[in-house]
């Protein structure tokens, strides 16, 4: 793929992101519910004070003016101040982001590490008991609601077996000076295997819960594409040549069968972000998803706008990456 095509594709992202900003702004502004009213709660305030609060938050300006101020500032990377935290939104989000990314990556790893072997196995042993089990399992995986599955895991591993902690990211005694803000990496960089295991024990359950639907989908995709590839002539030819079965399967078939898996994985990674809101709430994971949920309820406009924009950018970028990966893996396809 030429560099010019790549740049062209990148430029196409600009109108998409602009459209997303407009939609995000309009939707959150049109949502009924007044941030100042919510902030005042069950209190008695004078109209003057209410007006002063409105002014402090910039809500006394007309909507179109607020939109252009938002857009102008957003282009420069300034998303305003969070109504509740009274600090720049970008700072508040930056504090929570590493936890979310770390959780999503581990979930992705778990999903890939279980989905691909299971998918291949189901394809090879087609219509066997194992295949049927995998099919039922993947159906369950897609349908089980995350909050319910997460709580079941908690009750089993944390309350009954007392093997894993209930919530949080790391124990209080494992204080680590941050380097990358990814605890699994930082603990190793600081030479603290005990803290690494502590962090690992915290991430296992939320990552499994978060990765479950993705595992199920990837397994189905791998199984289907593996079956398809195994019907191809070149596979039959390789077998006819007398190559060992495992060599045919892993050297020839799997390599091509994984192409759709990889691009679906890239796209599905975007949806991990959405699942984060629920999983982070259940497991008290200090990430962005929970922050966004809390912010929506109190109509913390600046934070929700910035976070949704971030989600959108990530999603669009991941799709872009998926496209590129696809062309790299499958040179017959052009961007």
């Amino acid at each position: 793929m030429s560099l010019a095509r790549l740049i062209e594709r990148l430029l196409q992202l600009v109108p998409v992101l602009l459209g997303v900003s407009v939609i995000v702004f309009v939707m959150i502004t049109l949502t009924p519910g007044d941030p100042v009213e919510i902030m005042i709660g069950d209190q008695v305030v004078t109209p003057e004070l209410e007006a002063a609060m409105r002014h402090d938050l910039g809500l006394d300006r007309p909507v179109h003016e607020r939109f252009f101020v938002f857009l102008g500032n957003a282009v420069q990377g300034d998303f305003g101040e969070s109504f509740y935290h009274r600090r720049p939104v970008i700072d508040v989000i930056a504090e929570r982001l590493p936890a979310t990314i770390e959780l999503s990556l581990v979930a992705l790893l778990i999903a890939l590490a279980t989905a691909i072997p299971l998918g291949v196995l189901a394809a090879i042993k087609r219509n066997s008991v194992l295949d049927r089990l995998a099919t039922v399992g993947s159906l369950l995986g897609v349908s089980l609601p995350g909050f319910w599955f997460g709580i079941l895991l908690l009750m089993l591993f944390a309350v009954h077996l007392q093997l894993l902690p209930v919530s949080g990211r790391i124990g209080f005694s494992s204080e680590i000076e941050p380097i990358t803000h990814f605890l699994l990496i930082d603990t190793l960089l600081r030479g603290r295997p005990d803290a690494f295991l502590d962090a690992l024990s915290h991430i296992v359950l939320p990552a499994i819960t978060l990765g479950l639907p993705m595992t199920a989908i990837l397994m189905r995709v791998t199984r289907t594409s593996m079956l398809e590839v195994m019907r191809q002539d070149y596979v039959t030819f390789a077998e006819a040549k007398g190559l060992a079965r495992h060599r045919v399967l892993f050297r020839h078939a799997l390599k091509n069968a994984l192409i759709p898996t990889v691009s679906v994985a890239a796209i599905e990674t975007g949806s991990l972000l959405g699942g984060n809101m629920i999983v982070e709430t259940v497991f008290g994971w200090p990430g962005l998803g929970r922050l966004v949920v809390e912010s929506i309820f109190v109509r913390n406009y600046p934070l929700v706008q910035a976070a949704v924009l971030f989600y959108a950018v990530t999603y669009v970028m991941l799709n872009f990456v998926a496209d590129i990966l696809y062309t790299v893996l499958n040179p017959r396809v052009k961007l």
């Binding site: 009750m155 919530s167 709430t281 497991f283």
Partner: peptide
């Protein structure tokens, strides 16, 4: 721990 079921689990464990 925002989720009540998880809060209860944390207490019981």
């Amino acid at each position: 721990i925002p989720e009540s079921a998880s809060r209860v689990a944390a207490l019981l464990s």
